[in-house]
Design a protein around this nucleic acid. Structure first.
Lengths: 141, 141
DNA sequence: TGTTGTTGTAACAGTAATTATTACAACGGA
DNA sequence: TCCGTTGTAATAATTACTGTTACAACAACA
């Protein structure tokens, strides 16, 4: 059980746009070459990131641009944009036996604990923003 | 992108064993009826929980038993047993372009942050143990 | 010792999600 | 009008997950 490649692909995409968009036109083909992925896959990803209001994509002329202050875009925003699961991060088996004391109460017992796990993950993702990631990139470069 | 049903199924299974194993023989068929699942699916799950040394399963005669103090079994132990992904919870795209400053450094940039997210999730899971879940069950019952 | 109920496991099918790919209409500048 | 690009539909290949049938191995017990 893994989080899809889409997530790291989207972070990579956002970093490409952040790093390059003032120097050159960042197209889906350009990003697909940096990520070693497929232009159509990237375009779908760009659509999701645009939908979440994180970027602007110029139809026709081409190119993607960040729409917010880099400080205000966190890993959580990107995760939510491309891998949204809402409140259902944990997948429940359906119709547990309501004749059984465990089956009858399994949601009452578990829901809160599982929600807390999801929230802990979200909070940790919120701690990392794009500005920070970009400055780390420049240290390596 | 969701965590598999296996996880909540395994928690349900552990609770059934905890709650019933001193009163009756908890077989894969019994658990499959409480969870509304399939006996073979449960037997595979029991195999993983046994492998993780959380339970004992009696071949031949039948029945499953908890092998540790309930306080010492957390959601994290169960998750690790049935949904193990090791350190690779986040799935990376392969062969990013090493000619690109982002592609070349994407792992150096991201690995630590993603590991922290996974650790935060793990730590939250460790906060809930079976004893606690069982006593909540009894409140409802 | 044979019967019984159970576990362990292989094999297979159906479903769903993911990623890659081709194709093409629509768009916007030059 | 031409060109490169986006947006999107359609399809295929792969993989993971869940359900199911089948059966050998096992352990107690009559």
């Amino acid at each position: 059980m893994q989080i899809t490649e889409r997530f790291t692909l989207a972070i990579h995409t956002m970093l490409c746009i952040s790093y390059f968009s003032d120097k050159l036109k960042v197209t889906s083909t350009f990003i697909s070459q940096s990520t070693n992925s497929n232009p159509v896959v990237i375009r779908r990803l760009l659509g999701q990131l645009k939908e979440a209001d994180l970027i602007e994509v110029r139809a026709g002329v081409g190119g993607a641009y960040i729409k917010k202050d880099l400080k205000d875009i966190t890993l959580f925003d990107i995760f939510t944009a491309v891998d949204a699961v809402g409140n259902d991060f944990f997948n429940f088996h359906s119709n547990p036996n309501c004749q059984c004391p465990i089956g009858k109460n399994i949601h009452s017992i578990l829901d809160e604990h599982l929600t807390n796990v999801q929230l802990a993950m979200n909070e940790e993702m919120k701690k990392t923003n794009l500005e920070e990631l970009l400055s780390e990139t420049k240290e390596f470069f």
